[in-house]
Amino acid sequence: MSQLPHFQLLARYNAWMNDRLYAAAAALSPQALHEDRGAFFSSIFGTLNHIAVADIIWLKRFAEHPACHELREAISDLARPAALDRLLFDTLPPLQALRSRLDGHISDWVAALTEQDVEQHLAYSNMKGVPAQRPYASLMLHFFNHQTHHRGQASTLLFQAGQDVGVTDLLALIADSDGPA
């Protein structure tokens, strides 16, 4: 069975949830967004920023795959962040614009992959410069899982700040089947 429809679903889910999170975040004051709430990345803004930072780091790695020249070109102007808490912007609007851009690149990248592409291994170096080589598909799962993990934190922080993002389950994007169970 092909893995590609699963990755395409995860890319759609990623963009859908990010739209919901940023809409909720936009309803808060800058002070509320930046307030230290005791989270891994301190604030709602810090958490949203971290997701974008990690996405850039991973997309830069994924773009090294020989089949990903279009992704490599699309993100060539983005600098690779040197730290996981590197602040990309001070305010929400430019971070939201970057988020939207990244989500578009993620969807385009996943749509262009073939089954043979995801069956390859990817050689990369971690943030400390330690080389690694792992299955591309497994790294893609990590990529989407990482986003989900931190979006869960962000949705909790937003709820605590009075903003409910609503349904967050992947199930909301899975079509119902009329076929036999």
Rank of each mutant, 00 (worst) to 15 (best):
A54R: 07
A54K: 08
D55L: 03
D55S: 08
D55K: 12
D55F: 05
I56S: 07
I56E: 10
I57K: 10
W58K: 07
W58R: 05
W58C: 06
L59G: 07
K60M: 04
K60E: 06
R61T: 01
P66F: 01
P66I: 04
P66E: 06
P66K: 05
C68V: 08
H69A: 10
E70P: 00
E70M: 12
L71A: 03
L71T: 14
L71F: 09
R72D: 11
E73R: 12
E73G: 14
E73A: 15
E73P: 02
A74S: 13
A74H: 02
I75N: 08
S76Q: 11
S76N: 02
D77C: 05
L78M: 05
L78C: 14
A79D: 13
A79R: 14
A79T: 14
R80H: 14
R80T: 15
R80P: 03
P81W: 09
P81A: 13
A82C: 07
A82E: 11
L84T: 15
L84Q: 13
L84M: 15
L84C: 11
D85S: 13
D85L: 10
D85Q: 09
R86I: 08
L87P: 05
L88Q: 11
L88N: 10
F89I: 04
F89L: 05
F89T: 10
D90A: 12
L92Q: 07
L95Y: 11
L95E: 06
L95H: 11
Q96A: 15
Q96G: 01
A97N: 07
S100N: 13
L102M: 11
G104W: 13
G104C: 07
H105I: 02
I106H: 09
S107T: 15
D108E: 12
W109E: 03
V110D: 05
V110W: 10
A111D: 12
A111I: 06
A112S: 11
A112E: 06
T114E: 09
E115W: 03
Q116L: 08
D117N: 10
E119N: 14
E119S: 11
E119I: 01
E119C: 10
Q120E: 06
H121C: 04
L122P: 04
A123E: 13
A123Q: 13
Y124Q: 02
S125K: 00
N126D: 06
N126L: 00
M127L: 13
M127E: 00
M127Q: 08
K128A: 00
K128Q: 01
G129Q: 00
G129T: 00
V130L: 00
P131M: 03
A132V: 02
A132Y: 05
Q133I: 07
Q133G: 01
Q133C: 12
R134S: 08
P135H: 11
P135A: 05
Y136D: 04
Y136S: 04
S138M: 05
L139H: 03
L139E: 06
L139S: 06
M140N: 04
M140D: 01
